[in-house]
Design a protein around this nucleic acid. Structure first.
Lengths: 334, 334
DNA sequence: CTGAAAGCGCTAACAT
DNA sequence: ATGTTAGCGCTTTCAG
């Protein structure tokens, strides 16, 4: 690979001149400029971005840490983040923690050692104290990390919307089906919002929480059917993620029971699969979450003060899984 | 951030000694080593990987270029690639070309300028000649790029398996439904394999190719229904991707026609959604494709010679969508 | 066993 | 308008 020296020699100027031309600094005669450009062409010169980064103490690289890349939520988020980075002239170094706490910590310090200008973190750490000593710009997504700004969507309101929709579809004894989730995740608010709205509406709800690990479809379905049997009064269902909703809705055993025909149900996230399956869902603006996180991080990198919390709105997407019950109600009224 | 100089001063040794200790080079007295380690601790020292990379002319970064990150195939691939990179001590810089030819080219040279040690490329370029001048190690995934090694799965055999499965499920006039795809993609072999096996079995097939852009579910379904109407003899279907299969299988209008109950169908890729929907599919070893590509790239980076083409096996996963017809046939025989 | 010094490719004063 | 030089943080001869 040709270096700045090679170009300088080829164009018969000093390296400073070449550098000035690359960076559009200071005054350069047209003749010299032309000579240098030609030399660059001839040598297929590309400036070494690492050397530049070293010298300017700025890499224009952003690090992203997610638990998994191939979970629909995170792949969408990653896509959004890369798009925004690209728009702002940043490169993206991606890492997955694989939901492993040790690995997550290592990744953050690895990114630091690699001189990324800032980090976007979807942490799964119990205690995020450790990051507080860290002075590098960092934005947390979907949870609080003490001392850093965070971006998320309005989980509380999302939970409320879900409850209200079920209510309107006639449900009074809904089931809420989701994973066990630590309180420090903003997602926990999704449950709170749901519960509180239920209370307000006088709905009484049953709760089924499964461990993240037990997500095998069959086990999930088994647990679900057990709960349904125990609580025959259940007349609606809020599943706190579209993936889990898809697993329930698609399962043969469940279809055979006909349960789903008899009650409204609703998912969460707004993933493509909810559309395919025609499931009402609370849609998170995943793309905008990624965009917002990148923008905040870049602001922070350039030394500006940024908002401590950014909460983006969610919206309900009504589909068959609740609509048919609302219509039934409407026509009953008539 | 503390530098090697700070550590040297703190430990009262030369920077050379610190460097030697970091790299486990040469002989160091226990006393000195201890002193230096303690100084590192105290200063929270982390070596600057950019500086190291500059000096060693090796960044330990791999670049990955994909058309989209949030398409299930590519998010799974990206996950696999990051996992392998991590295992080999490499970092991953990810870029999406957004299916844009210009952007793809820019990304490749951007990665080069950033001193990645090698590139993994899922190209969508009509003419990949341009890369041939490029001397940086590069592995192509799912298509040929002249002058570089490629990794893919056995599309031809996958197409054959699909045809054979439909045949065994009783189909004689199958429809093949897929996107328009340039010949230079290995995926084209999927069609060839299917056609040739059909011929061998004496099946006669109808073809419906939609433009990548027209993937709106409704349009797709409209086209599909039109073809079915025109060709009432169709008695089986091969959809060349699981996503498109899901779009067909889930669509209300199609469900209502009952078409799907009357004939076997099969998807391709082995994505999670095919399992949820109980669709027989030809499963690609996406994870292994990623792994293999990384391994080859690293071999290449270390100057070794690597195989020009790696073709990984695919396997048929039988599910309800064909099984129920095979069983019917079986029982008819009895 | 340890240190001094050159150099990786580049930028940014400081000269001229 | 252009060149000289120091230095970014590190590794690696070469001396001692």
């Amino acid at each position: 690979m040709a270096t700045i020296k090679d170009v300088a020699r080829e164009a018969d100027v000093s390296i400073a001149t070449v550098s000035r031309i690359m960076n559009n600094r200071g005054a350069i005669s047209d003749k010299t400029r032309k000579k240098v450009y030609e030399a660059m062409e001839r040598l297929h010169y590309q400036p070494n971005e690492m050397a530049r980064a070293l010298q300017k103490n700025k890499s224009n690289i952003i690090g992203l840490v997610v638990p998994k890349i191939d979970y629909a939520f995170f792949s969408r988020l990653t896509d959004a983040v890369e798009e925004s980075c690209h728009n702002f002239g940043y490169k993206l170094m991606i890492c997955k923690s694989d939901e492993n706490e040790e690995r997550e910590k290592e990744l953050v310090s690895m990114l630091q050692a690699n001189q990324v200008d800032g980090i976007l973190l979807c942490s799964r750490l119990g205690d995020t104290q450790i990051y507080s000593e860290n002075m590098l710009p960092l934005i947390s997504i979907d949870r609080e990390v003490e001392g850093f700004s965070s971006v998320t969507s309005d989980n509380y309101s999302g939970g409320m919307k879900a409850a209200r929709e079920l209510f309107e579809a006639g449900s009074r004894y809904p089931l809420i089906l989701g994973t066990e989730i630590p309180e420090y995740m903003y997602m926990d608010q999704r449950y709170r919002g749901f519960f509180e709205e239920c209370e307000k509406k006088g709905m009484k709800c049953t709760e089924l929480r499964i461990k993240q690990q037990n997500l095998s479809q069959d086990e999930l379905v088994f647990e679900f059917l057990r709960v349904m049997e125990k609580n025959p009064g259940i007349d609606g269902m809020f599943m706190t993620g579209d993936i889990i909703a898809a697993k329930i809705v698609c399962h043969k055993k469940i279809r055979e029971t006909g349960i789903l025909e008899r009650m409204p149900y609703i998912g969460y996230d707004g993933l493509e699969i909810s559309q395919l399956l025609d499931i009402t869902t609370v849609s998170q603006p995943i793309y905008e979450i990624g965009e917002c996180a990148v923008e905040l991080l870049i602001k922070k990198i350039s030394g500006k003060l940024v908002q401590e919390r950014s909460i983006l709105p969610v919206r309900l997407i009504e589909r068959e899984s609740t609509l048919k019950f609302k219509q039934k109600k409407d026509s009953e009224i008539k």
